[in-house]
Each structure stands twice: as structure tokens, then as C-alpha cells.
Computed example of a mutant assay.
Amino acid sequence: MMNAVLKCKGAPGHMKFASVPIPSISPDQVLIEVKVCGICGTDRSFYHWGEAIANTYQIDSPRILGHEFAGVVAQVGSAVQGIKTGERVTVNPIYYCGQCSYCAEGLINICDNRQFLGINLNGAFAQFIAVKAQNVIKLPDSVSFISGALMEPLCVAIHAVERVKPGLGEVAVVIGAGAIGLLILMVLKAIGISRVIVTGLGVHKDRLQLAKSLGAETINIEEQDPVSIVKDITGGRGADMVFDAAGRPSAVSQAMKLVAKRGRIGITGFPAKPSEIMMTEVSLKEISLIGNRAYKLKTWQQACKLLEGGLNVEPMATHTLSLKDWERAFSLIDQRKGLRVLLAP
């Protein structure tokens, strides 16, 4: 038996810490002993539940949540090659079919038959998890378990940046100083975008300070007008690209005011309510609205190389708690006291 945190039914709360059987593995799977697992915004949405999450995801209960994790291979299926027990790994949580037209292009994020660990399949808020061998990513020796658990949100950031196609000398604005917003900042800096502006709320002053330490210019939108500041910085032109990493219904309409003519808006946030935007403005300014979901297969290799090259994502992991303290972990997130809170089984 093993300890796990389960979502029990589609309603607010209804999660519990319980003892469940250690999963058995099929010939093409490996069993991983989880060392740390991050709590994603999606996990928080499942915890609180609501119309938006119910309409977006189909989840059977009870379900073990959690998909941002790293651990050690504990057992290897009889048909698996190239993976050994004791190896340090993380896991791509997207189960892709490999047969549809999107998979053929490596676009597993929009696979027609996409399933996801911690949603459609049991996740890593547990001591052990069984996963397909093809989804296992070995961690470089220099990458810690914490960085390994943060590799999944780092992949989200890499994919979002790639989709917007930054150019040298361009100005970027990141709306939202959460973990994804700050990781987008770090990726932009890593590829040479020197001028990045991060906006956030007053309650996120510590996050804005972290953004500043990472090389961003910051705007507290409760004290300053981000539109006038960005216009001043860009000589009235506006930002070349704006990333919505806030997930607020107002974020895209604000991005429309921040972006220059022919600028790009990358949408990563998942707002709980519909966003209202003036499509006339999209046409008149020739703005590109770019949706971003998860990551491609190659993104994991890119993330590994960035971490091996010295990118330090560990400041994103502000708290590490025991799995049995999961309620306190979610409370820290609700109180906006943590960026990525990790659970250690």
C-alpha cells in the first residue's frame, strides 16, 4: 500500500489523504517512486471545482491528481528497453496516441486522443506512479529533483515563447507574476530578449521583486497604469509581444491596449469566465492572437538543455511540504503565499 491524495468527486473540496494499492505495471510501463510533485493551477481548480473546470475536463473519481513531478525508477516493465531501476527521471504527462495527424507533426499537446496524468489517469500526488516508458525523461546529473518537477511548467513557458516567435530587440510584456509568467520571463531572457516588463497585483509584490531580480522591469497595476508606462517605454508604439499568464478574463483586453500594431498576444492563462475583446481592434491593428497549450515532444529536450546550461528554476519552488500536509499546501496557494508549492511523499 502507499499514501496518496485523491479527488473524490466533482464538487468543491472533496479531496482526501488515503492509503491505496501501489499500482502494478504493464510490460510497456515503469513504476516511479515520486520524490516531489508540484501543485499546478489545474490541480487547484480541481480542488475548488466550478463550472469552467467541469466543462473543460472530464475526470472520473476517485482520481489521484498531480502531473509535475520527478522521482526514481523503482521497477521496469518486461518490454521496456533503455531505462534502468534507480535512474532519476521526470515524466511528460501527456499520453498521446501517435496515430493522429497532429501526433505525426509532434504536436502531442493537441492530439485527437489526448489523455493526461492526474486528470484522465492517476497522477503523482502519491508515493508511486505507473507511467508509459515512452513518456519518461531522464534527468541530467546536474538537475535536481526540484528542478525536474519544475520541468513541466518550464516546458509550458518554452512552448508559449516559441509560438509567439520573439525577435531580437523586441519588447515583451508578461501579464501575471505567477510561476508560468516568471518562467516565460526566464525563457525570454535566456534567448536574448533584453527588455521584458512583468505586471502583477499589489499582493504579489514579492513575486514582482523576484521578477526584477531576474532582469525584468515590473509594474504593480494597482499603483501604476501599465498602458501608459509601456507606451512611454516604447515611444508610444506599444509592446511587440504580450503574454497572458494571468488567466483573468480581463487579461486579453488589457493585452490589446499594451500591444503594438501587428503585435502578437500569446494566451496561456485559463480564465474561469469568458473574456471580452473588441475584434475590430484586432483587425485594425492587425494583432495576432496566439493560443498556447502545453508543449510539443521536442520541448522536453529544450528544457533539459536549458537546465543543463545553468538556467536556475528553483526559485519558483517556494515551499516543499509532506504529502500528508496537502491541505496546508493548497491553503498557501489560496493565500497567494507560494509560487510552486511542492509535495514530497
Rank of each mutant, 00 (worst) to 15 (best):
9 K>W: 09
9 K>T: 05
22 I>C: 13
24 S>P: 00
25 I>Y: 00
25 I>K: 00
27 P>T: 09
36 V>M: 07
37 C>V: 15
37 C>N: 14
38 G>T: 10
48 H>I: 13
53 I>G: 05
54 A>S: 15
65 L>N: 02
66 G>Y: 10
72 V>T: 15
75 Q>R: 10
76 V>M: 04
79 A>R: 09
81 Q>D: 13
84 K>V: 02
90 T>P: 03
96 Y>Q: 06
97 C>V: 12
103 C>M: 07
104 A>K: 15
108 I>P: 00
113 N>F: 00
115 Q>A: 15
115 Q>T: 15
123 G>W: 12
142 S>A: 06
144 S>W: 14
145 F>N: 01
146 I>R: 09
154 L>Y: 05
154 L>T: 03
155 C>N: 06
157 A>Y: 09
161 V>C: 05
166 P>S: 04
171 V>W: 00
177 A>D: 15
179 A>Y: 03
181 G>T: 01
182 L>F: 14
183 L>P: 02
185 L>C: 05
189 K>T: 06
190 A>V: 09
194 S>G: 05
195 R>G: 00
196 V>D: 00
197 I>C: 01
203 V>I: 13
205 K>E: 12
211 A>W: 13
228 S>P: 01
244 D>C: 04
248 R>N: 05
256 M>V: 11
256 M>R: 07
257 K>A: 15
258 L>W: 04
265 I>C: 03
265 I>N: 03
270 F>I: 15
273 K>T: 14
273 K>C: 04
274 P>C: 01
278 M>W: 10
279 M>Q: 04
279 M>I: 11
283 S>R: 11
287 I>F: 04
289 L>G: 05
290 I>M: 11
291 G>H: 09
294 A>C: 08
294 A>M: 10
295 Y>E: 12
301 Q>N: 13
301 Q>M: 07
308 E>K: 11
309 G>C: 06
315 P>S: 04
316 M>H: 05
316 M>V: 04
321 L>D: 08
323 L>M: 09
324 K>P: 00
325 D>C: 03
331 S>R: 13
342 L>M: 15
345 P>G: 11
